[in-house]
Design a protein around this nucleic acid. Structure first.
Length: 341
RNA sequence: CGCACUACUCUUCAUC
């Protein structure tokens, strides 16, 4: 419960109370905690907890291993994840489909589709059946790469295995098509999909809205956003993000500001990604005062500028020839613990 | 001690 309510510290405290009373938590409790520590990026405490487990003679399960594997993947340490899988195999464990899925996804996200395929083949070779998640991982990464031939092959073998595509599969496909086709063509394909029973959800809308924005058609994006409300879907920060970025990219900072104000007042509260878009918009126009104004505003709201924020500001300053200011910002960025990329 | 129930892991959408 603590983990679900994002109060990890309370969970840690309860664990301590249990320890003083000589009660042993189960492996499931530890797994929940380990996972929570991982997505809070509390890596040190993660390993501390991991080690504490074996001191209590509580042995990790495949769930535990997968949390570790996925953690390595999220940090981009995919080779480390791979080694870890090999190690647990040596220790006599048999990785399950979820572990393979994590590894496949890790390689896909790292852009190494051929290695992902190697892992996939190894899994099949060991007699472990791919499930829908496996196909969703592979299909979405091929979609992102624009390899629609590959997608067709995967889609067929998914159907041959008796698996039925779900919202994730279909949305991944629509997203891939949006990146490759004109929106007009996407709409025609989408119509067919809907005829065949696909129900559009808010992710589908976000994908379409993003597609139209990328095509420069912000008008249609607004229309779809309106449509969401009409059918009972609530636009999220990602929905507005797609539109705000569309407006910023076409240089319409007035409209972007208007929309930002709207969501600040009664929408989903804007995150640092939204402010980055705005900052980038102003930087492109050389309006550094406004850009820094937004930087200050985001800090005031308790948001933390990230690498993207600084990259945009530094780039904007450089383009204006303000190298000294750019340098100062880079120093400041490093000072806050960020690593220039 | 065993069993059952409940809680734990992997996939789709916005920024350089």
């Amino acid at each position: 419960a603590c983990v679900q309510h994002r109060i990890i510290d309370d969970a840690l405290q309860i664990l301590n109370v249990m320890k003083t009373r000589g009660l042993a938590p189960t492996i499931k409790s530890f797994n929940a905690l380990l996972n929570a520590l991982l997505w809070s990026k509390r890596t040190d405490e993660f390993w501390d907890t991991f080690r504490a487990m074996s001191r209590l003679s509580i042995w990790p399960s495949l769930y535990t291993f997968n949390i570790v594997i996925d953690g390595f993947c999220q940090q981009g340490r995919i080779e480390k994840a791979h080694e870890f899988v090999i190690q647990i195999e040596r220790d006599g464990y048999t990785p399950d489909v979820v572990i393979y899925n994590s590894l496949i996804d890790g390689f896909c996200k790292a852009g190494e589709l051929s290695k992902a395929k190697d892992v996939f083949l190894k899994m099949v070779d060991k007699g472990i059946l791919a499930n829908l998640w496996t196909y969703n991982i592979l299909i979405s990464s091929h979609c992102k790469k624009g390899d629609m031939e590959g997608v067709i092959g995967l889609w067929d073998s998914m159907l041959e295995s008796g698996l039925v595509p779900d919202a994730f599969t279909n949305n991944a496909l629509v997203d891939g098509l949006c990146r490759k086709w004109k929106m007009e063509e996407v709409e025609r394909k989408l119509e067919k999909m809907v005829d065949e029973g696909f129900v559009m959800d808010s992710v589908t809308y976000n994908i379409l809205i993003n597609g139209y924005c990328k095509e420069g058609n912000v008008q249609q994006a607004f229309k779809l956003c309106e449509e969401m409300w009409q059918i009972g879907l609530v636009p999220s920060v990602k929905t507005y993000g797609a539109i705000i970025d569309g407006l910023c990219k076409r240089g319409d900072m007035q409209e972007a500001e208007k929309l930002l104000k709207e969501i600040e007042d009664n929408g989903p509260s804007p995150n640092s990604i939204i402010y980055n878009m705005m900052i980038n918009g102003y930087c492109r126009q050389g309006r550094m005062d406004e850009a820094f104004g937004l930087h200050d505003k985001m800090v005031q709201k308790g948001l933390v500028p990230d690498v993207v924020t600084y990259n945009r500001l530094i780039s904007g300053l450089c383009k204006k020839g303000l190298l000294q200011e750019a340098d100062q910002n880079m120093t400041q960025m490093i000072h806050t613990g960020l690593v220039p990329n």
